[in-house]
Design a protein around this nucleic acid. Structure first.
Length: 634
DNA sequence: TTTAGGG
DNA sequence: CCCTAAA
């Protein structure tokens, strides 16, 4: 007997008492060194990264005025981009008081507004929701209709004024088929998504809605997330299609995703222990869909079901994490020397500290299928593995301001507009995949629909269960990145979110208890042709070239692994293949005229050595790993 | 997993 | 940088 249970809707989520080291994902776990290369990011790292982003960078050339956006659209954009039930939460233990809730959403994106907040940290979302119905409340509400559902959106209208009333900026969108006193439909034409509050307060307020809201998720929308074809490399698509995907009855996806939001629903769909890792079935508003599909040839109407409604919610028990606490935790744990108050040189004399409250991060929800005779312990492990597969394979924090990504890490908060109170309700953080070994880059999760399956070779699996399983996923993070952006962050172009959005497909981590996982997209063929991540281009610096040349001189051109160890042993982002390729280009560069060379000029001396080494090793086989290593005569 | 090469 | 056949 096999049952399938949707984990994600567990009201209280999964509270992980400690943040273990994350199992490495599919690639390179062979040696310890490889593990080091693994793009692992602990929750602490995450916070550190976040803190660094928020509090440590101040230089920039961008002026906030460029980012003046519609104040309302931001939240809604964020909401639309979220669109899912609230899911499990992970509470890292290192936050002294207050938890950073990582809510398992269907994708790694957080729309939770980071609010400027001043102690005392009051007010749950529910309270705000309550108050929002009061005209005196700092919250605004608006109502709109999604299909047959009336939806109320509560969001902040107030500005942060002074130090006492600044933490009133919350946004919650409340699904409402209930008795909530709703303003007339149409008050807020832009708001078209619904979500249900998962905070306890929200539950208390709209408890009846939760179940109803659950209905909002619809399996059919599993594939409704728009993947912009223009974002896909056709070439890659073809390859992926050819090599990694197989035809599969779409209905099987739906079956697999047909588990309702009722936690208790069991479905004997699969016969082996699997983890379903699917994106929340949701529907975006027509408004958002328009944006989503703006560059997509797929019609939204055919991608969504009428009764799908975006279900978005705030973290269950989303405990605020104040910057103070965060910094204190960081300082205490990792000697990060940043203080927040007065004397902090990070702040200009007249610069007010920016207090932020991260309500939650959202990561994809999980579907788990496990034999009924499995032990509770194995279930726990399975969930943990799924969780860590999502969280562990390298996350970085992205910042959304007014719905736009803030990419320039060098900007100050003020320059980025984060210190502007009138924008605080448009500030959001996202958990994003961090390309291996690369600085955090902003990546939007657009197609977080996966299935975790048995790790058996895909070909075997296909042969044995081809009618059930969705197409397998390419064996790596599938992140489409902006090729225009190098590793260096840059300013977000002032266009909409989707235009520069990225896609990601996390790759499951390895197992620990015989339940190895692999990830398979749950999407449909068209858009399950997910672009595989292309690593961010990282031009070799002169010093790197120097190290490479030196190592090749010593080791020869046939031992790239050794060269890598020798010259880039601690570098995560330079693989031996990279080095081999770089050497290839170096040889080429050395042979062409300086006028033809591009990029950062390599000193001629190095190029000469490249040619010399290349010539030498062309005639000397570098076979012997160690003893009398041939020396290059120079 | 590494190497070697083409793309 | 990617992709992959071969080793």
């Amino acid at each position: 007997m096999v049952f399938q249970k949707r984990v994600g809707c567990a009201p209280n989520g999964f509270h992980i008492p400690a943040m273990p080291r994350v199992p490495r994902s599919a690639k390179g776990k062979r040696s310890s060194r490889k593990k080091v290369e693994g793009n692992q990011m602990s929750a602490f790292d995450l916070l550190a990264s976040l803190a660094g982003k928020l509090l440590s960078e101040r230089e920039g050339f961008w002026t906030p005025s460029n980012e003046q956006l519609d104040n309302e659209s931001s939240i809604k954009g964020g909401v639309f981009d979220q669109g899912s039930c609230d899911e499990s939460t992970v509470a890292p233990p290192f936050v002294s008081h207050g938890n950073l809730n990582l809510c398992f959403k269907q994708h790694l994106k957080s729309m939770e507004p980071i609010t400027a907040t001043c102690a005392p940290n009051d007010g749950s979302v529910g309270e705000f929701a309550d108050k929002s119905l009061d005209s005196a409340s700092p919250m605004e509400s608006c109502v709109y209709r999604v299909d047959d559902r009336t939806v109320m959106s509560l969001h902040c209208k107030g500005q942060i004024e002074g130090q006492t009333d600044s933490n009133r900026k919350k946004s919650v969108i409340v699904s409402s088929e209930s008795s909530v006193d709703l303003p007339p439909y149409g008050d807020c034409p832009r708001a078209q998504s619904c979500s249900f509050p998962s905070t306890k307060d929200g539950e208390a307020l709209h408890g009846d809605d939760q179940e109803n809201s659950s209905v909002c998720t619809h399996p059919c929308s599993v594939h409704s997330r728009a993947l912009k074809p223009h974002c896909l490399e056709a070439h890659r698509r073809r390859k992926l299609k050819k090599s990694n995907y197989r035809k599969c009855d779409p209905a099987s996806y739906y079956n697999s995703g047909e588990v309702s939001n009722n936690d208790v629903e069991m479905k004997p769909v699969f016969h082996s222990q699997k983890l379903f890792y699917t994106r929340q079935r949701s529907k975006r508003s027509s408004f958002k869909q328009k944006k989503l599909f703006e560059h997509c040839s797929i019609s939204p109407s055919c991608e969504t079901s009428p009764d799908e409604v975006i279900v978005d919610s705030l973290a269950k028990d989303g405990i605020k994490l104040e910057a103070d606490n965060l910094l204190a935790a960081l300082n205490g744990a990792n000697n990060i020397s940043c203080t927040r108050r007065g004397s902090n040189p990070l702040y200009d004399s007249e610069d007010h500290p920016v207090k932020l409250c991260i309500k939650s991060f959202k990561v994809p929800e999980l579907f788990i299928e496990i034999p009924a005779n499995a032990t509770v312990g194995s279930l726990k492990r399975t969930v943990m593995e799924a969780v860590m597969a999502v969280l562990g394979d390298g996350l970085c924090v992205g910042i959304l301001l007014q719905g736009k990504k803030v990419r320039d890490d060098s900007k100050t908060l003020r320059q980025a507009g984060i210190s502007y109170e009138d924008k605080m309700d448009g500030l959001g953080f996202t958990l994003e995949p961090s390309p291996a070994g690369t600085p955090p880059s902003i990546l939007n999760l657009k197609e977080p629909a996966f299935v975790l399956t048995d790790p058996m070779p895909l070909n075997k699996f296909q042969a044995s269960d081809a009618t059930v399983l969705p197409p397998p996923l390419p064996p790596a993070n599938c992140i489409e990145i902006d090729h225009e952006n190098s590793a260096h962050s840059s300013i977000d172009p002032p266009d909409n979110l989707d235009s520069d959005s990225k896609m990601l497909v996390p790759w499951a981590a390895a197992n620990s208890a015989g339940a190895a996982l692999s990830l398979v997209p749950l999407g449909k063929s068209r858009r399950s042709e997910i672009a595989q991540q292309r690593r961010i281009r990282r031009p070799f610096s002169v010093s790197e070239v120097e190290a490479l040349v030196q190592a090749v001189e010593k080791l020869g051109t046939g031992r790239w692994r050794d060269v890598k160890i020798r010259a880039f042993g601690d570098s995560k982002h330079r693989t031996y293949v990279d080095l081999k390729d770089k050497w290839k280009t170096l040889v080429h560069t050395a042979r062409i005229s300086p006028q033809q060379r591009r990029g950062e000029p390599v000193p001629q001396e190095l190029l000469d050595r490249v040619l010399s080494a290349h010539a030498y090793w062309s005639h000397h086989q570098a076979k012997l790993p160690d003893p009398a290593e041939p020396r290059l005569l120079t």
